[in-house]
Design a protein around this nucleic acid. Structure first.
Lengths: 241, 241
DNA sequence: CCAGAAGTTGCGGGTTTACGCAAGACGCGG
DNA sequence: CCGCGTCTTGCGTAAACCCGCAACTTCTGG
């Protein structure tokens, strides 16, 4: 077995290296990549079938890298190893995993034991392993009791990018009013309407920007999600030139 | 000499521990804290004069912790050791450092050598050491050729929080129009006006939200800056009840 | 002391947002 | 086939936002 490690931080990388060797005696080669892009090319060159991938890396982040890798060979098994369980990451990952693929999501705060178990489960048993905490988020966002529907999430991203209502309407093929409807339900769910003291006066927030902020604070959005969304936007803009 | 290490990540913490011991043979005790809050209390209990502090930690981030520590004993020497050199962090730090205090800012990507040098410079020689890259940012933001003035940065934060023009006016004791002036100069500097294809049509951005997004993408803002700003806002709201 | 730069305010008007109201469109179990 | 809930869309309005124009207040260097 050959395992590819994609991880920014040299400390974490060497820790992972050891963990892999300890958990998988049948693994005879470990390759390391220090960035998303080199991870992609190494995966291609070595036809890697077993990858451990950090999310949040400096250049190209883990989700991007995983997407291109999975696009080329969807049966690749990837274990995501991340510091955070932001809903933005969880959504990002579950959006790109090909159906039937085995993957895992383990937090860096997990114990050695847990990490090793996850390594064996995915790479040997070909089974999905998703951290309890992350799992919770998934449930919540899929079962839409408190979570956001895809259309709400989509429009959240759109306003976060700074698009006008009209621009969103064009992009998503909707009428202006529909865009605004979706916005309203987003505002409802995000609970943007805290009238905020300001004594007796009106003193409301600017709903649009406030929604983005709250989403950020609740980790529905984060830097990497924004970055990806911005890239998609630029792409979309380019192809209608 | 006694050194206090405040750092989330166990790997980084033990790495730091070793680095401190190697660089400072005169250091007989090393104390470790795994979060900002325990860092604060340990600093108080031990009257720590030498601290190495991570920024971005899960609960209370490094800037908060440093602020309360410096408030109690401004002559404390703190070396910030961070993954990123976001302008938001740099601004955050330089906003709270007491004048005359010795402090340092070293990136985690720096070599062992550089880290050890910084440790000696600050803790033994009582000298400021700021990473080249970070220094560049400081220059740029202070010498305001391309950078932002304080008032522009302030208003950036205010709209990022989702305040309305009127609310900002009240908070900063300005007229509505002045707020809007500052907004305009912010928009100029952030270069929000890329009309963006959309064929012949108007299709502009929503300037307000777009400004926030661009600031995020350029790391003028980041999660921890937002978090702090939000806390300050709530505080301000509370004290006018 | 004055000219000029920089920042603050008021006024006015064009545009964008937020949202109530109401008419259709679509899906789905009975 | 009908009724009902969930989207979508249009219309209209009040508020918020963006910003040009122009009068004032500080400041600052000469």
């Amino acid at each position: 077995m050959k395992v590819l490690i994609v991880e920014d931080d040299p400390l974490h990388r060497s820790y992972l290296h050891e963990a892999v060797c300890a958990a998988l005696p049948e693994c005879e080669t470990v390759i390391e990549a220090a960035s998303g892009t080199t991870g992609e090319t190494l995966a291609r060159d070595h036809k890697s079938a077993h990858i451990v991938m950090d999310l949040q890396m400096a250049n190209r982040n883990g989700i991007e890298a995983a997407r291109t890798i999975w696009k080329e060979r969807p049966e690749t098994r990837i274990l995501f190893w991340s510091n955070y369980s932001d809903e933005a990451y969880v959504r990002g990952v579950s959006r790109i995993v090909p159906d039937g693929a085995a993957y895992g999501y383990v937090l860096k705060s997990a114990s050695d034991e847990r990490l090793k178990l996850a390594l064996r489960s995915i790479f040997v048993e070909n089974q999905c392993v998703i951290d309890r905490e992350v799992r919770g988020l998934q449930q919540k966002s899929l079962g839409q009791n408190n979570g956001f529907t895809d259309s709400e999430y989509e429009i959240l991203v759109d306003i976060a990018l700074g698009l006008t209502d009209r621009a969103i309407a064009r992009r998503r093929n909707l009428s202006l009013r529909s865009v605004q409807n979706r916005l309203q339900s987003l505002y409802d769910k995000l609970d943007v309407y805290q009238t905020v003291g300001f004594e007796q006066e009106d003193g409301r927030f600017n709903l649009r920007t406030r929604a983005v902020t709250i989403a950020f604070l609740r980790k529905l959005l984060n830097y990497s999600a924004l970055e990806r969304a911005e890239a998609e936007l630029q792409e979309w803009l380019a192809e209608r030139a």
